[in-house]
Design a protein around this nucleic acid. Structure first.
Lengths: 222, 222
DNA sequence: ATCGAATTGGAGGACTAATCTCCGCTTGTC
DNA sequence: GACAAGCGGAGATTAGTCCTCCAATTCGAT
């Protein structure tokens, strides 16, 4: 018996500090540029050499996993809180808005949530934990609220996908353009409706659209 | 004076045939795999060597331009026909559906339309020609039809973007999943509404979502 | 203070992949 | 049958990423 697996020996003080620097840098860089950012980029951003990063994390996937571990808990809290909302329709909408906000602010998070290529087991487990809560919320929003009866809980991720796509493409129109389309979509999710919900953001102008077209597809480089 | 620009000497018969083979192959390959398909792929698909392709088209962009030239005319016809619709709201919806259909069937076309990186001047001109017709259609759909009054013609491309994103992500649920979300969105575009429009396609099931996640982001390789 | 173990930096090896060129050989045309 | 036009596809070129390696440095227990 050499060493218990649960006691992998503490890091030297400076090493621990650098570990945290790496995590912080990774969080920033992945959020801005997506998961295709290189570990070289992250290391440089942290003011360290690549070698240091590779000593701490065997490869990029390990870093991504470590990084989004805590975000997942945050996500789960959000979902469960929404599940307890008195007004299920408001809770459901609020949840979608919050999830979109997080994904818009963090391109890496969006990529992790849309793909199971990275952090495979993570996002599987995540979905399993979300499922019952979302199913319940959807059900309640139909009986107690105005949610259209043919909405399926499986539509949930698709709504996020569409809105975050709009957010990515529409970013040059400002950070809130996506809310315009989410509002329209919510109006489409009502069983019936007397008047449109006021739109929270203006449409993009010609120049902004032009700019969006010029920067699409989103660069996966520094 | 050597040669008039308009008479660039006819191609030898076999060369002309190969040119057409290249165009046909390019159409297929770009439609299936998007504009990131390599010219090597296309050449091979056409049963020719790469050199042959490069003799005919100085580079990939030239091929893309040549290829989508005619598609643009087709697009313009569609738009103008929609503009003449008696029922403006039906015309607008029909136009969106048709444009989505085309982009869903042709990944390359979607990329050309979303980006001005390729075929820059093309898509600029295209937008200019679309604009008046779409503006008119939107205006009419508001006064004569149920289109919500805060809809802006600039929202038009964003609708296409969102729905085609859903189509790409949702393709494992079948070729029509996107129509489900477009229907919901149209319901959101109505000023008021008594009941939801029946959805034309079921939601994806868990397995299909799983599959979508595994193949995202869409591969840009053979 | 000392010394050995832990840690660091970042050049560079090993890949992968895409675009486009070159030129010996083939084919069409007159 | 001559010869210009065309062809194929190996490979030069460029780019970009992941990850390794090891001399030099730093930490901290003694």
């Amino acid at each position: 018996m050499t060493q218990r697996t649960s006691t992998p020996r503490p890091l030297r003080r400076d090493a621990e500090l650098n570990r945290q620097r790496i995590m912080a840098a990774a969080r920033e860089v992945f959020a801005q540029r997506g998961l295709d950012a290189t570990l070289d980029d992250i290391a440089h951003h942290a003011g360290l050499g690549v070698g240091t990063v590779y000593r701490r994390f065997p490869n990029k996937t390990a870093l991504v996993d470590a990084l989004f571990e805590e975000t997942f808990h945050q996500l789960l809290d959000l979902v469960e809180e929404a599940g307890r909302a008195a007004d299920a329709w408001a809770g459901l909408r609020g949840l979608i808005v919050q999830l979109c906000e997080m994904q818009v602010q963090d391109r890496g998070l969006r990529e992790v949530m849309l793909s199971s290529a990275e952090g495979r087991s993570k996002s599987d487990r995540m979905r399993d934990m979300f499922k019952p809560t979302i199913d319940g919320l959807v059900e309640r929003a139909k009986t107690e609220g105005p949610l259209r009866s043919d909405f399926d809980p499986h539509d949930f991720p698709m709504v996020l996908l569409m809105v975050t796509s709009a957010a990515e493409y529409g970013q040059y129109g400002g950070p809130d353009v996506w809310r315009r389309y989410l509002t329209m979509f919510f109006d489409g999710l009502c069983e019936r409706r007397d008047k449109p919900t006021p739109l929270p953001a203006p449409a993009m102008c010609d120049d902004e659209i032009e700019q969006a077209m010029q920067n699409w597809p989103p660069t996966r480089r520094s």
